[in-house]
Design a protein around this nucleic acid. Structure first.
Lengths: 113, 113
DNA sequence: TGACAATATCACCATATCGCTATATTGTAA
DNA sequence: TTACAATATAGCGATATGGTGATATTGTCA
């Protein structure tokens, strides 16, 4: 077994960041916050998530250091704290598009799209 | 609830890609394959993963379209099929470094590193 | 064909996670 | 203080996942 350039702690930290991104609801939240910061109730309305679930997912995103929440009286205003995630998502999206196109070509070779 | 620019299928596809990246063992495999393609037994040796587990995780990575496996007689040679993942990992790594440094600064303000 | 090697898959246990309801916490205003 | 609103947390059931040993599959060679 080879000595790794990456140690376990680093790998675990990277894995945790990806885990925070690996959920439909949380991606939806991030996608919503990308347009503009939101209070929790707004987020629930826009995403269709229930309040308890939204709070839970927001906590996970905040723990991962991807978003930031600031109390404003009775409300909490969440915003993206790590714009880098959109670069990442764009890379993934382009990969998925490529995959989809390739799979389509395999199914219907020569067809124009 | 607002109409999303991203539909559920797209979000699910993105989430699945991140899920494939959200595991310590799989990151270790990718990190190993980044240096050069490997046969399964080599991979087991280098990563310390057991054969059954390595096969399982390799299957997940292949399903996610991140790696590619080619039979060569009795062996199967795996290689990265999506170099983009290293761009992604680098972005995440730099974020983690930043976070770590910031946390360190908060604990020991003014200290030189 | 049979014996063997490399890899993949199966069945299982332990653990983690999602979304839910109910409840607790925190802040405002009277 | 009480009443109320916004958010967070607890606890639950259902489901998914990681790692394991055992076994199946696939390929090589005699």
């Amino acid at each position: 077994m080879v000595k790794s350039l990456m140690n376990d702690t680093q790998l675990e930290a990277i894995a945790e960041t990806f885990a925070a991104l690996a959920d439909h609801s949380r991606l939806l939240i991030l996608h919503t916050l990308q347009r503009h910061p939101c209070y929790v109730n707004e987020l629930c309305e826009k995403t269709g998530l229930k309040q308890a679930n939204a709070s839970k997912q927001l906590g996970i995103l905040r723990n991962a250091g991807l978003i930031d929440g600031q109390r404003q009286g009775n409300l909490v205003r969440y915003s993206i704290s790590e714009p880098m995630i959109f670069e990442i998502c764009e890379l993934v999206c382009s990969k998925i598009e490529r995959d989809t196109r390739r799979r389509f070509e395999e199914l219907a070779p020569g067809k124009r799209g």
